[in-house]
Design a protein around this nucleic acid. Structure first.
Lengths: 115, 115
DNA sequence: TTGCTATTTTGCTAATTAGCCAAATATCAA
DNA sequence: TTGATATTTGGCTAATTAGCAAAATAGCAA
């Protein structure tokens, strides 16, 4: 990948990479509400069950979720709910970007319609 | 990608994806110290200057950094320093995972050497 | 203008990732 | 045992990404 950076940058990037997917962000939010099994999530996401299972295994390998088998199902839950705080910051980035777009529109004289 | 999820999951994932690379995490931390130009960062990272420039453009497209041209250089700076808080949470995930590994080692009777 | 420095863009290859389907595995009940 | 349900794994293709080197662009000074 590269040569000069200390290894902890790669370890951190692996965790962040695991979060960088729409379906996995959805899963993280949903698991914040409570534990869920693959079957629950599959219905909500609308992908093949094998795809959802793989998403969960990505999150598990990254150490973000934990699984517990009970009966015939496997229940997933969040290891570190603090990652939810981060979503708020991501929203801030999105809002900041949107405001910048509006400033550009304003200064170019493009009257952005308010509706 | 998928069909059923609301579009904000994709918007958020794009921002997180931009952070999910060792060199870009390094850049984010470095920009938290102060503004830097491509040339500064290239020396620290040890990749080709064109590669570093592309990393910066990924961060810029995601709305994470801002650039300002002054003289012959372009100075990059962080848009939302709150993303640095997230790194702390990522470290928590890493520590939690490490502790779990140690628990497994303990319960299997593998005496993990303390050095 | 030419030359020098800083940066981005293009072109290319190698590696990774996402997604589906089908097959395999596991658990429970009859 | 068979059958039903829940989940994972393997195989495959398409799409994305990272990286370097070379070429292009931009600003400044002589």
């Amino acid at each position: 990948m590269k040569k000069g950076l200390p290894p902890q940058y790669e370890a951190r990037a692996n965790i962040i990479k695991a979060m960088g997917h729409p379906a996995r962000l959805f899963i993280i939010e949903e698991l914040n509400r409570g534990e869920r099994c693959v079957n629950d999530l599959t219905g909500m996401i609308g992908s093949d069950v094998s795809t959802v299972s793989k998403h969960l295994s990505v999150l598990k390998n990254a150490g973000l979720v934990h699984d517990e088998k009970r009966g015939t199902s496997i229940y997933y839950s969040l290891c570190c709910p603090c990652i939810l705080d981060f979503i708020n910051c991501v929203e801030t980035v999105l809002r900041t970007g949107a405001e910048k777009q509006m400033d550009i529109a304003r200064c170019c004289g493009i009257g952005a319609k308010s509706n």
